[in-house]
């Protein structure tokens, strides 16, 4: 009876089905405890959080240089910028767009930098549904390898003010 003081001798080892259940639960927890480190070393999708401190001004300048050096096109006034395979690309999240449009090649590996010039934002790549946090003052580096091609919209999924719902961007993979 859970609402009364337990009779003396209540402290005892589990027995019977309860003991069996504790064993099963512990086994399952050990399996899950192994799965995450295993995937960290052998899996191909890991949010390692590689990141650096960066000022908003410095990052903004780097984005501008990146666009100037690598622009390959334009869509509705937004530059389309191709990252050289193996190279670094810089994406800026701001109220309320992702700048610029990024162009990649399937099967190549890139270092994609994410940062914000104002509030916190969410980098959400659709329809793959891959999601990463973007913070002002932090250069968040994703080492990505696109394994499919097409046009992939980016949406913001961290609340960033009244225009949040219209904050989008794009990654094009050929």
């Amino acid at each position: 009876m859970s609402i009364y003081n337990p009779p003396a001798g209540w402290f005892k080892a589990p027995a019977g089905v309860e003991r069996l259940w504790v064993g099963l639960a512990l086994t399952w927890c050990i399996i899950m405890s192994i799965a995450m480190p295993y995937w960290h070393f052998y899996g191909k999708q890991n949010p390692t959080g590689e990141s650096y401190k960066v000022s908003v001004q410095e990052y903004g300048q780097r984005v501008a240089e990146f666009v100037k050096d690598n622009q390959v096109g334009d869509e509705g006034g937004i530059p389309i910028v191709e990252i050289p395979p193996g190279g670094d690309g810089y994406l800026l999240a701001r109220m309320w767009s992702f700048y610029p449009i990024i162009k990649l090649k399937q099967g190549q590996t890139y270092r994609l930098h994410l940062s914000s010039s104002d509030l916190q934002h969410g980098f959400s790549l659709q329809p793959l549904n891959m999601n990463f946090q973007v913070l002002p003052g932090y250069d968040h580096v994703l080492t990505i390898t696109p394994t499919s091609s097409g046009i992939f919209p980016i949406i913001c999924n961290e609340f960033c003010g009244i225009g949040h719902h219209a904050m989008t961007g794009r990654i094009i993979v050929e």
């Binding site: 869509e75 509705g76 937004i78 309320w96 767009s97 449009i101 969410g122 959400s124 659709q126 329809p127 793959l128 549904n129 919209p153 949406i155 913001c156 999924n157 961290e158 609340f159 225009g163 949040h164 719902h165 219209a166 904050m167 989008t168 961007g169 794009r170």
Partner: peptide
């Protein structure tokens, strides 16, 4: 959410965005 729909988001139609986006 498995389709990618964000939480805390007013408009799944993304009305007014520069680059159009829609869900399945």
């Amino acid at each position: 959410g498995s389709y990618g729909v964000p939480r805390r988001h007013w408009d799944v139609e993304f009305t007014g965005s520069q680059l159009a986006m829609g869900f399945d």
